[in-house]
Design a protein around this nucleic acid. Structure first.
Lengths: 110, 110
DNA sequence: AAATATACATAAGAATCTTAGGTATAACAA
DNA sequence: TTGTTATACCTAAGATTCTTATGTATATTT
């Protein structure tokens, strides 16, 4: 991506949001989805994503289930009930965050 | 602030943007301005701000000038000519960043 | 046969912040 | 006058979150 450091701290809410919308995704799919939603500009690295997924699972926000497709392993993740609460909260924070950016940078749509 | 890690990576563009708009500011003033622009929600810590100002100056993005007001030192910063170019670029990145957030989080205004 | 894509994973190090401390002056309250 | 709050600068240690580099393995395309 253009300036990776902008996205520092935002990966976690992104993953949670995508799982809220898609119900069930595997890691590689998440990287593709973010690329697609941002016209190829935002590339989540695997070195960031997989450890994050593991810690979200350890926190009880996500739960996983393995499947084999074409002899290749996929690890599907979805929100737990607790994850759904976290998701609502996280979404509120992001909404506020974007509002703040619009105020600070004078980006408010006319 | 609510979730400090969201703002990780965004402090630098914020400082540059404020100096683009206000022409000349000192550190303490920047923390107050950000608080005011975000209804008290975003608090820039001095431990983050001052080292950042120093490194922006070392990079040639900012230049400083000391003044004494009421026996207290103030260090005013402003953008250098090079800083103004950096500012334009940085602003473009932020605009794109916010657009991406709106796409990922489905925040596009109706 | 080699390269690319899919799909997972970890570890070292970089970047960016928080927390905690320090110095000093001015204004206000107890 | 003594303590507290506000102003105004600063640094260092540590936490968090990422990038970069590397590894394993299978499937598909060139």
């Amino acid at each position: 991506m253009n300036n990776p450091s902008l996205y520092k701290g935002i990966l976690r809410p992104i993953v949670i949001r995508l799982l809220e919308e898609k119900k069930k995704m595997y890691g590689f799919e998440i990287t593709r989805e973010v690329k697609s939603l941002t016209a190829g500009r935002v590339k989540i690295t695997e070195g960031a994503l997989y450890p994050l997924l593991h810690s979200l699972e350890a926190e009880g926000v996500l739960e996983s289930e393995q499947q084999f497709v074409d002899n290749r392993m996929r690890k599907y993740y979805k929100l737990t009930p607790r994850g759904k609460k976290v998701s609502k909260h996280s979404f509120g924070e992001i909404t506020e965050f974007v509002t703040h950016l619009q105020n600070i940078f004078n980006l408010k749509p006319a």
